[in-house]
Simulated assay, not measured.
Amino acid sequence: MATTVTLDGELDLLTTARTTNLLAAAALTTSDIVVDLRSVTFMDATGLGPLARTACQVRGRGGRMTLVVADPRLERVLRLARLNDLFTVVRDGGGTDTHCQRHA
């Protein structure tokens, strides 16, 4: 069973510690993590750090990490940072999954 972590607001330098703590706690209890980013309004490179570290940790144990996004700009940040291959990305268009793609 996957553990879901819901993040909101901005993922940046000011929220890195909180994000790291939330994801680390989830990684201790399960090998599969779903991170709900639908309420994230901004994400920069420092906001990507906790996501990438946790994904690597989970993958190292044979698990997977899924990101749920509603904003195509967040997907673009992942793609530009070339980190989108660490995650399964599920695009949510307001309550209904409209696209699911696994990047291996």
Rank of each mutant, 00 (worst) to 15 (best):
L83A: 11
L51N: 05
N21T: 14
R61T: 12
S31K: 06
V35Y: 07
V68F: 06
V89S: 00
M43Q: 00
R102W: 13
A17R: 04
L51Y: 04
T98V: 15
A24L: 14
R59M: 11
V34N: 01
G63N: 02
L51T: 09
G49I: 15
T16L: 12
L80M: 12
L48H: 02
S39H: 14
R59G: 05
H99R: 13
A70V: 05
A52H: 04
R18S: 11
A24W: 14
A2C: 09
D44P: 07
G95S: 02
T96K: 15
G95P: 00
T4M: 02
G49C: 10
V89H: 02
A52V: 15
V68Q: 02
D71Q: 03
L86R: 07
R38S: 10
A26N: 01
N84S: 11
T54F: 03
A17N: 06
T98G: 08
G60F: 05
S31W: 00
T46K: 02
V40W: 03
V58P: 00
L13T: 00
P50T: 01
T98E: 15
D92A: 01
T16E: 12
T41I: 04
L78F: 09
D32Q: 01
L80C: 10
A70P: 00
V58M: 13
F42P: 01
D44Y: 11
T46A: 02
L11K: 10
L13G: 01
P50C: 03
A24D: 13
T88M: 00
V34C: 02
T15V: 13
T98F: 14
A55D: 05
R82Q: 15
G93L: 12
Q101D: 11
A70W: 02
V58I: 15
F87I: 04
T98A: 09
L28K: 13
A24N: 12
